[in-house]
Computed example of a mutant assay.
Amino acid sequence: MSALTRRTRLVASALTAVALLSVAACGTDEPDAAGAAGYNLTADQNRITTDPVPEIAAEVPQSIRDRGTLIVTGSAGTAPPLRFYADDDKTIIGSETDFAHLLGDVLDLDVELTAADWAQNFVRVDSGEADVFISNVTVTEERKEKYDFSTYRLDNLAFEVKKDSGIEVKDPKDVAGLKVGVSSGTNQEALLVEWNEQNVAAGLEPTEILYFQNATDYYLALGSGRIDAYFGPNPSASFHVIQAGETEIAGTFSGAGPDLQGEIAVLTKKDNGLIEAINAALNHVIENGTYQQVLDRWGIANEAVETSVINPPGLPKKQ
């Protein structure tokens, strides 16, 4: 995960991307206030809810129970559907906020959503300013030294291409000779660079890697043919495919590489006593079906986990 830009850029890029996607879907019905493809992009969210579970709520540390609020930090993101600003430019919405509210429901706590730059989210948890960090956080071995994790999504990456382009990416050699966009400082960049080095060493054509930080920029490049594919988080790609209708997924890969399935998790300060309640709440919503409803609502059902696990194997430390 890369550091994210500040709020002004987040607002502009997320909402402009949504607008562009609607324009790209020419020939379809004009989107209503809920957005193209039926997604609710307004501040008035029809969130999935569930009932409190007293025995799980009782596991929450007393200081948080007395406060009555679960303080959730995260990044607004640069593209839907994970965590972004609604069309009022101030309300944070998306699948990650829906999961936060489901946790609040089970734990019988109000949810306070806050946003910060990527690195500052860790600082907020360190200082106790926030209880949990829920914002597409990948489990890594390095992070596990300071934090506890409870998983709730697979960490998958996707190659998004123009529909009917004929491009399929099943293994590293399939990117040889392609122009591929990627965001710098991300897991996907590291994988793409590694694959390109392997291909060149094997005598294959090099991949031309182009760098983008904003959704609007890489979708314009993909639409104009300046790049053949964009390699990014699977949720954003899946959301865009459904909404725009002019692209498709050419291949998906674990964000942790070929030897490990990466996982996205709720992050808490290590040994603060909260992760057990979070884990129990996540497994409860998985069992009662509301978890799946959130995934379906945002078009990311292909990242479902069967069970939430505390502190699974994470991305290895860099050598």
Rank of each mutant, 00 (worst) to 15 (best):
T207A: 01
E208D: 14
I209F: 10
I209H: 07
I209T: 03
L210Y: 02
Y211P: 06
F212M: 05
Q213P: 09
Q213N: 15
N214I: 00
N214Q: 00
A215D: 08
T216A: 03
T216H: 04
D217F: 04
D217Q: 02
Y218E: 05
Y218V: 02
Y219E: 11
Y219S: 04
L222P: 05
G223R: 10
S224C: 02
S224W: 00
G225Y: 05
G225Q: 03
G225L: 02
R226A: 11
I227P: 07
A229H: 07
A229I: 07
A229Q: 01
Y230P: 02
Y230N: 13
Y230H: 14
G232C: 15
N234P: 01
N234K: 13
P235K: 14
S236Q: 14
S236D: 14
A237Q: 12
F239D: 12
F239C: 02
F239P: 11
H240L: 13
H240E: 01
H240D: 08
V241A: 12
I242N: 15
I242S: 12
I242F: 01
A244Y: 12
A244N: 15
A244R: 13
G245E: 14
G245V: 08
G245D: 10
E246M: 06
E246K: 15
T247D: 05
T247F: 04
E248D: 13
I249R: 05
A250Q: 03
G251D: 10
G251A: 13
T252H: 11
T252E: 13
F253D: 05
F253C: 14
F253E: 05
F253I: 13
G255R: 02
G255M: 14
G255K: 02
A256C: 03
A256P: 06
G257R: 01
P258D: 12
P258N: 08
P258T: 14
D259N: 15
Q261K: 11
G262N: 03
E263F: 11
A265G: 15
A265Q: 06
A265R: 01
V266I: 15
L267W: 10
T268C: 09
T268E: 12
K270I: 05
D271K: 03
D271F: 04
G273F: 01
L274F: 01
L274D: 00
I275F: 08
I275D: 12
A277M: 15
A277W: 14
N279F: 09
N279W: 11
A280C: 12
A280I: 10
A280S: 15
A281W: 02
A281V: 05
L282C: 08
N283A: 06
N283R: 08
H284M: 03
V285P: 06
V285M: 12
V285L: 03
V285K: 14
I286L: 13
I286Q: 06
E287G: 02
N288M: 03
N288R: 07
G289D: 13
Y291V: 01
Q292M: 12
V294R: 10
V294I: 14
L295F: 12
D296N: 13
D296V: 00
D296H: 07
R297G: 10
W298G: 05
G299Q: 06
G299S: 12
I300R: 03
I300D: 09
A301W: 06
N302E: 15
E303C: 06
E303H: 04
A304Q: 02
V305W: 01
V305S: 07
V305Y: 10
V305R: 08
E306K: 13
E306F: 08
E306G: 13
T307F: 00
T307C: 04
S308Y: 10
